[in-house]
Simulated scan of single mutants.
Amino acid sequence: MQYEGVLNKMHTEFLNPIQYYLVFEQAFINMNQVINKQIEIQHIGYQCLNCKKEKKIFRQGFCYDCFMKSAAAGDWIMRPELSTAHLGIADRDLAYEEKVQLQPHIVYLAVASDLKIGVTRKTQVPTRWIDQGASFAIAVTEVPNRYLAGITEVALKNHYTDKTNWRKMLLNQIFNVDLNEAVKNIEQFLPVEIIPYYKETNHEIYELNYPVEKYLTSCNSLNLDKTPNYSGKLIGIKGQYLLFEDGTVFNVRSYEGYKVNVSVL
């Protein structure tokens, strides 16, 4: 079977195990169903996810012009503490920023490799944790906007990492931690104005199970710009990564906006 289209991050369903779908304009692949099959990926071009033009991808699926202009690529995306919609101040497009920033956000602890702090919109729970390859996650506090989540994350970065070690995550080298105890200990580091929200938050632990036949002992990342044609036996999926038997791993999200042919052999 052969499919052609533009890569976007895989759609997911929070089941046991998590279900993955690679979705193109005219078709989709349930990736769980092709585990243990030979997959061929061929890079054939680009298409910006924003303007839809066939222009080289710069970052996050956008061409250079769109990345520099689109409200969906503002600095506050990666740095929530820079959000200003709660003040009525625009960065690039106030209507868009109000829609995204002025909704409930979750500050969380997740274990994908080490214990990390992060921020996501409430509507993205547990999708955000799945995309990161977290094995366990717990909400620290729910707040009403992105700015409050951002300043909370900044305060907690002094005590927790905000990065996932992707190699350790894919090798299933998971930090052993009591998340209930970790959430209790975190209160002392929270900004004073966040503590009332923290006390009202449901601290439920999520456990996430991924469709992996066998974890790798070492891994190397596939770069489509350097290796435009690749074929390998798919043995698992974790986060937004495809894991292949030869130790190759492919981060689908890193190649959003790339046009590909995908063959299931």
Rank of each mutant, 00 (worst) to 15 (best):
G133M: 02
H43E: 11
Q60H: 09
A182D: 07
K122E: 09
F244P: 02
T120I: 04
H159S: 12
Y3G: 14
V125N: 02
H86E: 08
A85P: 07
N16R: 14
H159V: 11
N145Y: 15
P196T: 02
R59D: 00
Y147Q: 04
I235A: 07
R59F: 08
V212M: 04
D246F: 00
H159Y: 15
V264P: 08
F244K: 05
Q240A: 03
L243T: 07
H86A: 05
V107C: 05
N36F: 01
I235T: 12
I35M: 03
H11F: 11
T84H: 07
Y108H: 07
E204M: 00
L265F: 13
L224G: 08
L243Q: 01
V23A: 06
I174V: 14
D91N: 09
L242M: 13
K56Q: 15
E200V: 06
L179I: 10
Y215S: 00
G133L: 04
G232P: 06
P126L: 02
V100D: 02
H203T: 03
V252K: 00
T141I: 08
K214C: 05
E54M: 10
E142C: 12
H11D: 15
N36V: 07
M68W: 12
D114F: 09
L156A: 12
N145H: 14
V125Y: 10
I117W: 06
H86V: 10
L15T: 14
P228R: 10
V119I: 03
L82V: 13
K199T: 07
Y210P: 00
Q103L: 07
F28M: 13
M31C: 06
L234C: 03
F28C: 12
G45T: 15
A137Q: 04
L148N: 05
N165T: 11
V111C: 05
G236Q: 06
K238Q: 09
D162T: 10
Q33T: 15
V23S: 03
N251W: 06
W166Y: 09
Q60F: 11
V249R: 02
V119Q: 06
E187K: 15
Q19K: 15
P191M: 08
Y230N: 01
K37T: 11
G232Q: 06
G239E: 00
A182N: 03
R146L: 02
N172C: 10
Q38W: 06
G236T: 07
I29W: 00
I174Q: 09
Q2P: 02
F14T: 07
I194H: 01
G239Y: 01
A90D: 03
D91Q: 09
T123W: 05
T248Q: 02
N50D: 14
I186Y: 00
L243G: 00
Q42E: 15
L234G: 04
E181S: 15
N145F: 12
I18Y: 13
N50H: 13
D91L: 10
L234R: 01
F62L: 12
I29L: 06
V260S: 07
T84V: 13
Y147R: 15
E207Y: 05
M1P: 05
R92E: 09
S263E: 14
V125H: 01
L190A: 05
